[in-house]
């Protein structure tokens, strides 16, 4: 228990290595650019059309806005979540376990802390690219029409960071690919469905609503909606506080764990 608290509260050290390891991933990304664009941008866009436009036709208005207007802020969040999570689990695990990329980097002056931070930062950036992709398509549909999108982008980046760190944490424990399925089907996918994404939280029973407030994505979705509607309220502060708290705790924990796994 004490060990756990220590892991969560010890801040990893930033250094120049974060940048070089990030750049290593970016160089690889450049080779596989088209594949990434395909799933990072095309897939969420399909959701936007199929669910936002398609299902939306039968829904009418929610809280005074059309269904697609209700839905797209949530899609910004869940797209960022999924891309970041997949990057810091499957892709990162490949580098850790199969390619031994990190073990080799450790022979250089780059430290384990920097590798962990670089991986989280990289996965966050890739998730953020997904966010920008959805945003682009949303703009083409005329959905984005407020300057509040700028502060919302900051929230969306923090959202990516939270799930990138969560993914790395899982990766640091996992011995085999299959284990990711637990986190994916047991947590990430349900969260993308029940965090006030496809329908408002108040349509859930009370107990389920209380539970939903424990989910990080709920806070991202709420904060993004508030901002895009131009509503600044105390709840928004709570949402942002919760996200920042999780971002810090999860990244401390994930990097500490990764370090223990790498330096034996």
């Amino acid at each position: 228990m004490l060990e756990l608290i220590k892991d969560m509260t010890s801040f990893p050290k930033w250094g120049a290595g974060v940048f070089t390891v990030w750049t290593r991933n970016y160089m690889y990304f450049k080779y596989t650019f088209l594949i990434t664009l395909f799933w990072v941008i095309l897939e969420p866009s399909l959701y936007l059309f199929a669910v936002g436009k398609g299902v939306g036709m039968f829904v009418g208005k929610i809280d005074g806005v059309s269904y697609i207007e209700f839905f797209y802020p949530a899609l910004l969040c869940s797209a960022g979540m999924l891309v970041s999570f997949f990057e810091s689990t499957y892709a990162c695990f490949t580098r850790l376990q199969h390619q031994k990329t990190f073990q080799t980097i450790l022979f250089t002056p780059v430290q384990a802390d920097e590798i962990g931070l670089a991986e989280i930062l990289w996965a966050s950036c890739k998730g953020f690219l997904g966010v920008l992709g959805v945003l682009l398509v949303s703009s083409l549909l005329g959905l984005v029409n407020s300057v509040w999108i700028l502060p919302a982008l900051i929230i969306l980046f923090i959202n990516c960071w939270v799930f990138a760190a969560f993914g790395l944490l899982i990766t640091s424990y996992v011995k085999h690919w299959d284990t990711f399925i637990y986190a994916q089907s047991g947590f990430i996918i349900p969260m993308s469905l029940f965090s006030g994404t496809y329908f408002p939280l108040y349509s859930l029973p009370d107990w389920a609503q209380s539970f939903a407030y424990l989910l990080p994505l709920t806070h991202s979705v709420m904060a993004t909606r508030f901002l895009l509607e131009g509503q600044i309220n105390p709840m928004l502060l709570l949402n942002v506080g919760m996200l920042l708290f999780l971002a810090i705790i999860l990244s401390n924990w994930a990097v500490s764990r990764l370090k223990k796994r790498l330096i034996v």
Binding site: T20, V21, T23, R24, M27, Y28, Q99, T101, T108
Partner: peptide
């Protein structure tokens, strides 16, 4: 993930 040249280049960058 990289060519022989890039392996050396990236490794140098870590230093």
């Amino acid at each position: 993930d990289f060519s022989a040249f890039d392996n050396l280049y990236i490794y140098a960058r870590y230093f």
